[in-house]
């Protein structure tokens, strides 16, 4: 387990900034919780944890350490970063653009479907095309994240069966990908 290098930090922030915008600053400083949180790499996965926990982890050998804190995602062999569904609780509170799904659209989304216009209850204004959005239920429970298929203005003209948000990850993966989600 080690801190991130400059290049790795940049790649990670670029990915998180798609969903959070300026909200990343809250992840770094985290003034509301008091204790500082840090990013750590174990093998190719990035974890977000309290600094005290990261310091304790130094007493465990790298080979013996499986995971620690909240897994945000992993670095691919080509150096890109892939965000996992486990990062949702970390990024959702700081999200910039959001889509609220009506109860009739929750299950189709949790089974891996895209968000249709007919299922949308509300959406953030001024959202451009192909921008990262967080999908929430009408009672503000984060369900997953995706990418906007149309800008808000375009989506208004769309027919009810048109896709508004392309799914990237949803909390249904905890069941669907149970076998592979936490394997390293």
């Amino acid at each position: 387990m080690r801190p991130l290098t400059e290049a790795e930090t940049k790649t990670l922030f670029e990915k998180i900034a798609i969903y959070c915008g300026r909200g990343i600053s809250h992840l770094i400083t985290d003034a509301n919780e008091g204790e500082r949180h840090v990013f750590r790499v174990q093998k190719d996965r990035v974890y977000y944890m309290r600094e005290s926990l990261a310091n304790l982890a130094t007493s465990v050998a790298r080979d013996n350490l499986l995971s620690l804190g909240t897994c945000l995602g992993k670095f691919t062999k080509t150096g890109k970063f892939r965000l996992h569904i486990t990062a949702l609780p970390v990024i959702a509170p700081h999200a910039r653009y959001k889509v609220w799904v009506k109860p009739n659209g929750e299950m189709p989304f949790l089974y891996g479907g895209n968000v249709l216009k007919a299922h949308v209850g509300r959406w953030s204004e001024d959202c451009p095309e192909h921008q990262g959005v967080i999908v929430l239920s009408m009672i503000d429970t984060p369900l997953g994240f995706g990418v906007s298929a149309r800008s808000t203005a375009d989506a208004r003209r769309l027919d009810p069966t048109g896709i508004v948000t392309f799914r990237q990850a949803d909390i249904g993966e905890y069941l669907r990908e149970e076998d592979t989600l936490f394997t390293t």
Binding site: R2, P3, L4, T5, E6, T9, K10, F13, E14, A17, I24, S25, I28, T29, R36, V38
Partner: peptide, 15 residues
């Protein structure tokens, strides 16, 4: 390695 708040903030601002 980048582990201090200042350098992380600098990278964040750039991104």
């Amino acid at each position: 390695f980048v582990d201090d708040v200042e350098s992380m903030s600098a990278i964040m601002a750039m991104v």
